[in-house]
Computed example of a mutant assay.
Amino acid sequence: MFFSSDTRVLVQGITNALGSVYTPLMLSYGTSVLAGVASGDGGQDVASIPVFDMVEQALAAVGEVDASVIFVEPYDVLDASLEAIAAGIRQLILVTEGVPPLDMVRLLRKAEATDTLVVGPNCPGVIVPGQVLLGTHPAEFYAPGSVGVISRSSTLTYEVALQLTKAGIGQSIVVGIGSDRIMGSTFQQWLQILDEDDRTEAIVLVGEIGGDSEEVAARYIAEAIDKPVIAYLAGRSAPKGQVMGHAGAIIASQLGDWGDDIGTMESKLASFKAAEIPVGDRPSDLPKLVKRALKSAKNRTNDDE
């Protein structure tokens, strides 16, 4: 797993509205926030965390950093991310919403070339319950356990985690991959990570209408994932035929011979059904589906033995 209580963290944009609010919350959760960066605000501190003008200055003062949580304004995200990568930071959490698409294209090219994990943008980040909080997750909704959650949503992620926690089902990690037009890490990447993670016994995937992320994920699960996966899809009550603006998804559907209904609830449900992935009608359905999946997986293991 990439993140743990030992993860050394930098916050870029620490003095802006979000950074100044969520840095103390991350710190109080036990996250090892070593320094912050905010151009022009060097020499200040936020919740006793020293602030520097540049990433290079921060690392010279505090040493090696594993991950950076980025709260800067949308048009500054590319520069902040490239600065972090140049300093050797290989895990970036982009909380900021509305990053220009071409900036994300440039960033992802650099990330691929440097083997950098990018989570987001427009995401609540990552939480490993009981160990580390990187982003804006409300920590009180989570509990340590063995179910990994991957989500495109933000607030819906919190609701799903709360339903699991109330049912006595803890989480190994919860990741909001983001919902901007162009994202960093994908459902497939995190499915592979969690499939290989010893602490994770089952995976909950939280998707929504629009785009083809869920259809692609369903195919990948059927082909490559061994652990049980349960899904919830938001948007069932959206008006049928409403244009969501996902032109790229429509083109991808034609190239992939998936039909022109890609991105609709019907398309996504059909994809999960074909992959034999149970889908909850509402978040409150997920705990029983998870328990059922874990029981089935345990029975299969016993039969194999």
Score class of each variant (00 low, 15 high):
residue 104 M to L: 12
residue 283 P to L: 09
residue 196 E to A: 15
residue 14 I to V: 13
residue 62 V to G: 05
residue 191 L to E: 06
residue 6 D to W: 06
residue 196 E to T: 13
residue 87 A to T: 07
residue 148 G to W: 01
residue 72 V to I: 05
residue 7 T to D: 08
residue 277 I to W: 02
residue 49 I to H: 02
residue 10 L to E: 00
residue 299 N to G: 10
residue 24 P to A: 13
residue 25 L to G: 05
residue 124 P to Q: 12
residue 155 T to Q: 06
residue 173 I to N: 00
residue 105 V to M: 12
residue 114 T to C: 11
residue 196 E to P: 03
residue 225 I to D: 02
residue 120 G to D: 06
residue 254 Q to T: 13
residue 27 L to F: 00
residue 249 A to N: 09
residue 214 E to A: 08
residue 293 A to H: 03
residue 296 S to T: 13
residue 270 A to F: 04
residue 251 I to D: 06
residue 89 I to T: 05
residue 180 D to S: 14
residue 16 N to V: 00
residue 202 A to C: 12
residue 269 L to D: 06
residue 20 S to H: 10
residue 16 N to I: 00
residue 47 A to I: 08
residue 51 V to H: 02
residue 5 S to E: 13
residue 81 S to H: 02
residue 61 A to P: 01
residue 217 A to W: 02
residue 137 H to N: 10
residue 145 G to V: 11
residue 177 I to Y: 10
residue 87 A to Q: 06
residue 274 A to G: 08
residue 189 Q to P: 01
residue 102 L to N: 10
residue 279 V to F: 01
residue 226 D to V: 09
residue 131 Q to N: 12
residue 201 E to F: 02
residue 124 P to M: 14
residue 239 P to A: 14
residue 189 Q to C: 08
residue 177 I to L: 14
residue 62 V to K: 07
residue 288 K to N: 11
residue 167 A to S: 11
residue 228 P to N: 07
residue 104 M to R: 03
residue 283 P to F: 03
residue 34 L to W: 01
residue 186 T to I: 13
residue 283 P to G: 09
residue 156 L to S: 05
residue 155 T to D: 02
residue 160 V to S: 04
residue 94 L to D: 02
residue 256 G to N: 15
residue 6 D to N: 14
residue 188 Q to Y: 00
residue 87 A to W: 02
residue 288 K to H: 09
residue 236 R to P: 00
residue 38 A to W: 01
residue 196 E to K: 14
residue 48 S to G: 06
residue 133 L to H: 04
residue 256 G to F: 10
residue 237 S to L: 15
residue 34 L to Y: 02
residue 290 V to R: 00
residue 106 R to E: 09
residue 166 K to R: 15
residue 173 I to S: 04
residue 13 G to C: 10
residue 249 A to M: 10
residue 236 R to Y: 07
residue 203 I to Q: 04
residue 139 A to K: 12
residue 173 I to Q: 05
residue 224 A to I: 01
residue 17 A to D: 13
residue 302 N to D: 09
residue 171 Q to C: 06
residue 257 D to V: 15
residue 83 E to P: 00
residue 101 P to Q: 13
residue 119 V to I: 15
residue 29 Y to P: 05
residue 14 I to F: 04
residue 155 T to C: 02
residue 9 V to E: 07
residue 30 G to E: 09
residue 101 P to C: 09
residue 277 I to F: 02
